Simulated assay, not measured.
Amino acid sequence: MARRKSRILAFQALYAWDSGTKDEKTLLDFSWASEAQLERIGEDGKTFARLIIGGTLEAIDRIDAVISRHLVNWEIGRLNKVDLAVLRMSVYSLLFQKDIHPSIVINEAVDISREYGSDDAFRFVNGVLASVKSTLETENRKL
C-alpha cells in the first residue's frame, strides 16, 4: 500500500509537470503536496516517488517514443494528461525497475487510472501497457 501511495504522488507530480505548473526541483521537494499525504507515505515512500519522478523526466524522450509506438490510431499529443502521466511513470517502471514485476506495475497503473482518469481510461492504459510489456518480453528473449 505504501508504494501505491508513492505512485499516486509520482503520478500527481508528472501531471503537474506536463501541465506546466511545477518545475522538476519543486516536484522533487514535494512542497506542493499536503502534509498528511507526505506523512502517510513516509521517507521511504518519498524516496520511491522521487525515483519514479526523476527517472521518468530523465528518460522522457525514450518513454514517450515507447508509448507512441504502442498507440493504435492515436497520437501521444492527443492523450489526456492524466492518462499520459500514468503511462509515463508505468513505462519508466517497465523499462528501468526490473525488480518490480510487470504485472504489479500494470495493476497499479490500472487502479490509479480508475481512480483519477475518465470512466474507460483504465482499459486504454491497460491495453497500452500490456502491449509494451509484451514487446519488452519479446526483446528480452532475443538477448
Rank of each mutant, 00 (worst) to 15 (best):
M1W: 10
A2M: 15
R3F: 14
L9G: 02
L9C: 10
F11A: 12
Q12I: 08
L14I: 11
Y15D: 04
D18Y: 13
D23K: 08
L27T: 03
F30D: 00
F30E: 04
F30K: 07
W32V: 11
A33R: 01
E35Q: 14
A36L: 13
Q37H: 14
R40V: 07
I41K: 01
I41C: 04
K46E: 12
K46R: 15
L51E: 12
I52W: 05
I53K: 00
G54I: 00
A59L: 13
R62P: 01
A65P: 00
I67W: 05
W74T: 10
L79S: 04
K81P: 02
K81C: 00
K81E: 06
D83H: 09
A85T: 05
V86K: 10
S90M: 07
Y92W: 06
S93Y: 02
L94E: 06
D99L: 09
I100C: 01
I100V: 15
H101F: 06
P102G: 09
S103A: 14
I106W: 05
D111A: 12
D111E: 14
S113F: 04
G117Y: 00
G117I: 03
F124E: 01
V125Y: 00
V125M: 02
N126F: 05
A130G: 08
V132T: 01
T135V: 07
L136Y: 10
